[in-house]
Write a protein that binds this DNA or RNA. Sequence first.
DNA 1: CGATTTTGACCTGCGC
DNA 2: GCGCAGGTCAAAATCG
Length: 486
Amino acid sequence: MEPLDRKRVVNEMDFFAGDLSSTHVNAGDDDDHHRVKMETEYPGFLQDQADDVNTGINLLTTNTASEKSLQKQRVIQLADVRAELERTNAENQWLKLTLNQVNNNYYALKMHLVSLMQRQRNRVAESSKANNTEMNRSMEDKTHGEGMVARQFVDLGESEKAEKDEISESSSEERLPDLSGSPGNTIVESMERREKNSTTPEGLPQPPGWLPNKAPKLNTSKDNEQAQHTMAMIQKARVSVRARSEASMIADGCQWRKYGQKMAKGNPCPRAYYRCTMATGCPVRKQLQRCAKDQTILVTTYEGNHNHPLPPAAMAMASTTAAAASALLSGSLPSADGVIVPKGMMLPCSPSLVTLSASAPFPTVTLDLTHNPKQRPLNQLHPISPPWPHNISGLPPHLLGHPIYNQSKPLGTLLSSQGNTELIPGHLGQSQMHVHPVAMAAAITADPNFTTVLVAAITSIIGDSHRDNSGNNNSTTSRNTGDNNT
DNA sequence: CGATTTTGACCTGCGC
DNA sequence: GCGCAGGTCAAAATCG
């Protein structure tokens, strides 16, 4: 065998079984850690290493003449290997970052594509509608309105500039997200950056991430207002979770601050309003209310998107709401038509577990966790165990907890034009819309993460629902206040 | 004393 | 235009 091969073998001996040689350089915990990691990533690695060591032992016992110089070379070689290992680790980290970035860019492009497709659909619908009803309407106004929905996915907070540029619709630069630079150049972050730069109607700076419910209206055209309204709908899509709990609040991992309480019509229990306080300006809010018919059921309704990293516990809920809202709004559905049908959508895995409500005022998806889990063990809903605390939904990190920003399908195609539906899932009115089981199955197929996330969330919630959130010792109980008390 | 909750007032959208 | 209901604000009260 060539000397180089011997050196490699001895070096690996040292690397793998550092105490075999009296001259080995500290293998240390790092090497142990490395070997464990390598065995984890490449099963059989340790066996291969052991084979190499045995080979090396044989070589050493048969040839020890140049051992001194060999030991010197081993030290050098070991240093080289370690340097190489560090370089590989660094490269690995870089590759991971790159992968994340590619993921981010992929989702940004995907959303952009969907928004463009929707624009096209809107354009067709608008032109046919215009032909029938408003022949004398100015072409400029029409053109202005058509592109707003798609544009606002990208240019939220830049409406004035958008108005000026709207005519030049063919300019792709203004709508394509900047994918060229630093990680996270996504539509989401683009929107968030622009929010930071945006101002209130009074000219005051907006808190980062804050999406005011009272969006300033564009008074340029009716279409603009409609687009604004649509965008507001998208931003206000809700995910409602029903769970039996004696606790005043389900622990969802986030910190909340109560900012209001009202008596809701038809329910003796007050509705409490909470705002996420994990980051300044986080727009996420939630409502807590007990079901009127069964006050052991606590209904938690989430609205908005976190603008900050979430702890694993919070990511559970956030990802669930993200996936659920995604199923509602973009639906993971191939077509805007025929997805949500007037009757009967439930998750095929568990009757009444998930209800999609696309009714006014805001689209809501309800996760009903009040059914007896013994009838259908949660872990049978999906063969894959919840992958927490890792990327539980399979969504890029920036999407976690951002159920709304990622919705590309304008709600105009999903929203019912009629009626008001109570936010409380138990009281969903006639205008509640369901998705056909087949359609939902298609949705699940298209978005398999949804089921996984849902199961994980349910597991989490069931575990948490019976213990009070010590950090959220808010009471929604005895005092019924507000100017709407009747 | 700062953070949080309470609670009456106010704002907005919607239906009539 | 008016009233109702949902949602939010913000000062006062309370808590730790």
